[in-house]
């Protein structure tokens, strides 16, 4: 599927940023061609998944308040079908990391992510979740949640505005629409994530050997 065919209601494809990134993603996925039947099935699955993303009720600080605003009357993410916020990570599809993650919270966040059922997505909201933001120099703040869990969409801001979050959610939908249920890319494109995973693996190896 081409990126051009991505249909998001009342937003044109050109209006979105980062289309080149998605094109690369599709190219990678479709190397060697796609079976027609599987392609259609993929479309159906992706349609379902992209329109039914249930967020986990999770917020640590300021961005959480703006996240509440997204759920409230003005922004209303119920329009996209995202309003079924689940309190149990087992039933949620996406975790909005809204707020700073500190060293004490890091294992908890990791655990929450591990508790979620596949397919699961992560949206990092606000400067703190992306890179540590204003608390970059702090002794206790994790410098970006992508050090702990893989992130799909970054929504900048301090705190992110509700409309920015809506945009991030639409980008998330677009990304899900390009997935392939039957065929996974051999190599993840997100090199940063790969590096981090390798790093984490290495660290865990170190721990094992030291024991």
């Amino acid at each position: 599927m081409e990126v051009k065919n991505l249909r998001v209601k009342s937003m044109k494809n050109e209006d979105f940023n980062n289309n080149d990134y998605l094109e690369k993603y599709v190219e990678e996925l479709h190397k060697g061609g796609v079976n027609v039947a599987i392609g259609v099935l993929d479309d159906v699955i992706n349609w379902g998944r992209s329109h039914s993303v249930w967020p986990l009720t999770f917020a640590t600080s300021c961005c959480g308040i703006e996240f509440m605003c997204v759920g409230a009357a003005r922004a209303d993410f119920a329009r996209f079908g995202w309003e079924v916020t689940r309190n149990s990570p087992r039933q949620a599809d996406v975790i909005f990391v809204a707020g700073t993650i500190v060293y004490k919270m890091a294992p908890v966040l990791k655990r929450l992510y591990d508790q979620m059922a596949e397919p699961k997505y992560v949206i990092a909201i606000g400067g703190c979740a992306i890179s540590g933001g204003p608390f970059k120099d702090s002794y206790n703040v994790v410098q970006g949640v992508d050090k702990i869990i893989p992130v799909d969409v970054y929504v900048p801001g301090c705190p992110s505005r509700p409309n920015a979050m809506l945009y991030g959610m639409m980008q998330m939908e677009r990304k899900i629409k390009l997935e392939s249920f039957f065929k996974l890319p051999k190599k993840p494109i997100i090199t940063k994530e790969e590096e981090i995973r390798a790093q984490i693996d290495e660290e865990s190896k170190d721990v094992k050997t030291s024991k």
Partner: peptide, 14 residues
């Protein structure tokens, strides 16, 4: 406590 302790007071010293 401490799941969102960012050390703002210490950061302020710099």
């Amino acid at each position: 406590f401490g799941y969102i302790h960012r050390g703002i007071e210490k950061m302020s010293e710099k």
